[in-house]
Amino acid sequence: MLLFIEQCLNGLQLGLLLFLVAAGLTLIFGIMDMVNLAHGSLYMIGAYFAATFVAWTGSFVAGAVLAVGATLLVGMLLEVIAIRPLYGRDHLDQVLGTFGLILFFNELVRIVWGPAGLRVPLPDWLKTSVPILPGLQYPTYRIAIIVTALAVALFLYILVMRTRLGMLIRAGASNREMAGALGVNIKLLYTLVFGLGAALAGLAGLMQAPILTVQIGMGENILILAFVIIIIGGIGSIRGAFVAALLVGLIDTIGRAFLPDLLRLFLSYRTASAVTPAISSMMIYLVMAIVLVVRPQGLFQVSGK
């Protein structure tokens, strides 16, 4: 039972990280009607920046803040140079153009940081674990991830639903020509939204960095998962992305943890251990297929899309 709770927390943590990536992706799609495959590259860039800045400042928190800021700038620069000409183009063009950007960023990172993976050390106060239930210790850092991501999700909700900027974002999403005609600087708004999405992806990347190795191509698997999430949640819906991200995070983690035992009830030990890795990797894709069969437009369909 304790193991189950621990795995649920791990799933929650993965889901929240995925939400940060998926939120940016779905925001950019919902508002600019733009498919951005290079979003995973921004996740990777965030992690690499964190590795550099943490080593440079000697403080994890300061390094993380700098890394998020730097990723935000890279995102805005990227939008102005490469993404802006792709607005209003066919989705196929956008897929292809940003696919090229992935190659570009992977190679750029190889040139700047070298081909070997990097490690981001945790400060001592995050290396501890805290008892959350009698008999259950949980790493402080993972709790910190959960808290930070929840705070960011709340911030995002307030930003989009309660502020003037959020109002403009929503206006731009529902009718960009009308918003432009009413004097909203659409170009600037798009750059800001893209930068925000980049910063969210970068934040997810840097929070994942101490857990995994920082390496080239680390954003690609996350990117595909984030796409699965926004498909399940309904493209353009942040609420959908939140629900779907938690769903995917929990299914993936709990599946990997408990599927072997479950399958052993039905199959022989050898067959079960042979097929589980494959089945647990496939599971979220199966969930997506089922969701699409039942609801082709995702769980939370955005009206007018």
Binding site: A82, G100, L103, F104, E107, L108, I111
Partner: peptide, 11 residues
């Protein structure tokens, strides 16, 4: 690092 040329070429 030839891919750094190939990528933008797609774009």
């Amino acid at each position: 690092y030839w891919q750094i040329v190939l990528g933008p070429l797609f774009l």
